[in-house]
Design a protein around this nucleic acid. Structure first.
Lengths: 214, 214
DNA sequence: CAAAAAAAGGGGCTTTTCCCCCTCCTCAGC
DNA sequence: GCTGAGGAGGGGGAAAAGCCCCTTTTTTTG
């Protein structure tokens, strides 16, 4: 048996199987399991007792995504290290993943050598940061407005989700059981808070920040 | 040398390298080259004379995407068969790719066995259709409005992209060097064609169908 | 060439969106 | 008990979006 066991969690079977072949060729690692989503991962952990050293975790997956799965792992098996592996290079996604407890973040367009390096670093140093990730972390602390980042209140988020719909504000008002004028207030508040000039800007923000599901 | 040569075109190096390993394990195929985008593919064809039997083509790539590359291949090397390989299962993308001349369409979440079958089918029968693709083709002929599917003209697409921006229609008009009234015409035409009732619907459509980049 | 279709532009109208400034109520905290 | 913050609601108006019906020009095509 090789030194380190690894589990791949990714819903793209072709990719995960191909990746398994690639990693099995590295003499220091071997693939312990290939799973399709977070739910399968939890089931695997409930049915097994010998845990892997590293989990290569995709982020966008059906049923249970990588962020939730990473949170679960951090709660129940904090010694198993998660290395996020995604083609999504949006800053918010990277941050969410790191906040959930991932020890590193790799993009799928990297060279296999980098992956090998990344896995080794996570095992040895407990952490692996690429330049891209470092930049994202720095960006969250940019001198923007001082105290808090753009944090929406529950009611504002609810409105934003409805604004990303083809409903008129009047319809949104009745959906939220509020007067159209109150909705008008939420609208203005969000315009200012998110620095947009019209409803399209609101929709674009909601989608970019993944606050709304399409 | 093995029977059939294959070229992989995909910007996700980790995936393409892993896939190369996978396919090299199939005894009937060998990988002739692994390229990162459509432009590299054209350059490769200009510098080589022994062409592959099949090209596994990703769709979303920087510089030159899979659709354009497939069109170029169809024009210049119609004997080389393109098998589209994407995680994008949107109907419009599938249709665009088949219209560009792809002989089949596979999703990245398939099992390696299916890939092997697909490549073999494309080589032997010249074509490979999964159920998903067949459905898409059927859907374009749904008894909707008679003639054409939802295919946007270049000018309409240009307008749609600008509509997915926080610009006003007046600003869009001057961007496209048209009168606001003409823009109004495009708007109405798109509302009808895409079955939406306001600009938000337009934005949502554009993003869902990945016609606009965020 | 003529007919048809597509592209461009317009008039006039209603609804919706956007903006600013104002009131009432409630509840937490000196 | 007063005060201030925040949620809910409102008046009024300008601008943009949406709707229908119409003309002219260019391009395509039988």
């Amino acid at each position: 048996m090789k030194q380190h066991q690894i589990i791949i969690v990714d819903d793209h079977v072709l990719f995960s199987q191909a990746l398994k072949g690639l990693i099995d060729d590295f003499e220091e690692f071997s693939i312990q399991a290939v799973l399709g989503n977070g739910k399968e991962l939890i089931t695997w952990f409930e049915e097994n007792t010998k845990y892997p050293a590293v989990i290569l975790m995709d982020i966008n997956m059906p049923i249970m995504d990588g962020i939730e799965a990473t949170k679960w792992l951090n709660d129940h098996h904090p010694d198993v290290k998660v290395l996020a592996l995604s083609m999504d290079d949006h800053e918010t996604t990277i941050i969410s993943m790191l906040r959930a407890g991932a020890k590193g973040y790799l993009l799928k367009d990297i060279h296999p050598k980098i992956l090998r390096q990344g896995i080794n670093d996570v095992i040895e140093k407990g952490i692996y940061y690429t330049e891209r990730v470092t930049n994202s972390i720095l960006n969250t602390y940019k001198p923007d407005n001082g105290a808090s980042a753009v944090l929406l209140k529950p009611r504002e988020l609810e409105f934003l989700k409805l604004a990303c719909t083809d409903k008129t504000y009047k319809e949104i008002a009745s959906d939220m059981c509020l007067s159209p004028k109150t909705i008008d207030g939420y609208r203005e508040a969000l315009f200012a808070k998110l620095e947009v000039r019209n409803r399209i800007g609101l929709v674009l923000y909601g989608i970019k920040e993944k606050l709304v599901v399409l």
